[in-house]
Design a protein around this nucleic acid. Structure first.
Lengths: 238, 238
DNA sequence: AAGCATTTGTGCCTTCACGCACAAAGTTGA
DNA sequence: TCAACTTTGTGCGTGAAGGCACAAATGCTT
């Protein structure tokens, strides 16, 4: 995860790299809130106010931002537009990214119609599925319309569109096979919605979103609460 | 996050509590893989094999499992059915949990049709939406059919169904208001799909799933790769 | 019965993440 | 010009998380 740390050229800060993963995971939140503030006409914001709106502590926010550089003014705060620009730049949002979605079932359809993609520089450039009923379907994706291609076109589509990010929204049984083909075609960033553990070579990054896992974590804490409120074990032990 | 750690009664291990959050987040994965092994007729599995299938190191797996108790046999491994049962018990999967989904748009529909819920003890007991076109729609959810109720029925539905977990799949603009009403009605476990930061009182747990955030994290690493491969800065500096 | 092979459970160490608290820096007002 | 106030940036201590490596425990073989 933390390779390639040499290169002694002095960049903005931190050599432009070495940003902790935990910080990177929060930057999109900061960016979204900042855009909201900009839309409301806010020009300047303090770390305290911004942190509150982002649901983090102000110290954490300041330390996160300090990894990007010194973009604040002491005694004043941060200029919203300025900071927003630098975060989007650091996140790579200043350039467009092509996204291919594999699996256009219920979830795939929901992803296509999600409006948060285009506004952040992500463009869906291809849809793939193996089911005959879905292949050929025309899907409206904000920008232009797209036609669902057969799964056999995976390699051609990825290369032709030079997509760099792939979303897997297939059943679990097909996920690993699709993943292998994506990796073989050169995709190195994958977002996996299928409930299955994907194995990939080093250098390929997989992030997973698992609905059942999230619910089970909630259930664990919920049960813990119930157990704490009814300590019957102690009573029955006596 | 780590409150209520007193109570000195000796339980299975660790007082039955005090399981690290990082471990809890991995337990559902172990559980799912174990179920797959059981379906394949496997009786016994070593930490090494199981860890590989779960995508973690064997040391981490063993330490995770040691928080639940000593359920393995040295020299042999873990009995699949036995371990699977104890994990599901710890996660609270041995009892059914009622789930209410607020917002039955594209994403909400996808969630309803997701099959991973029922098989893990989660039962969708209510659907709510504010849009007239969706209210009254009959949706098939594996078990029985459900009719989308108007959002005004939120409090009645939650109380009548005694749902303990709520899923927010509304637009961001409605999320906080819905969240407040859920909390006021007694819901303390919320899974939020809306791209907005929810504010809740202590004692309520919110987990969030944010598609745009995940893509932006991928984009960050993708950009980092590109920058590393084309160190033009150094060349142009000379 | 005894030794060998295998695998778990865990102690120790390193790294990462977080929060506190404060010095440095900048603004405002007199 | 100077002092009081505000806010950033960060050094430091604490705790969580992960990995290594090994002793303890079990099954198997001779």
């Amino acid at each position: 995860m933390s390779l390639s740390r040499q290169l002694g050229s002095s960049r903005t800060r931190d050599d432009g790299r070495g940003i902790p993963d935990a910080t990177v995971a929060r930057l999109p939140i900061y960016h979204r809130v900042l855009r909201g503030l900009a839309d409301d006409g806010v020009h300047t914001v303090s770390s305290d106010t911004l942190a509150q709106r982002c649901g983090v502590s102000s110290a954490k926010l300041r330390k996160d931002l300090s990894h990007l550089g010194s973009y604040g003014t002491r005694g004043v705060g941060y200029e919203v537009a300025f900071l927003s620009y630098h975060i989007s730049r650091e996140l790579g949002l200043s350039q467009p990214w092509g996204v291919v979605i594999v699996g256009v079932g219920n979830l795939g359809h929901a992803l296509v119609s999600y409006k948060g993609f285009a506004s952040r520089g992500f463009e869906i450039v291809g849809l793939l599925d193996s089911h005959p009923d879905v292949i050929g379907e025309k899907v409206c994706t904000g920008g232009r319309d797209l036609v669902v291609q057969p799964l056999t076109e995976l390699e051609n589509l990825v290369k032709a569109s030079s997509a760099s990010i792939a979303v897997i929204a297939t059943p679990a049984s097909a996920a690993q096979k699709v993943c292998d083909r994506l990796v073989a075609t050169g995709v190195r960033s994958i977002l996996n919605f299928a409930p299955s553990v994907l194995t990939v070579p080093v250098g390929v990054e997989v992030r997973k979103v698992d609905l059942a896992v999230e619910l089970q974590i909630l259930a664990f804490h919920e049960q813990r609460r119930v157990d704490d409120l009814t300590p019957l074990a102690q009573v029955m032990q006596a």
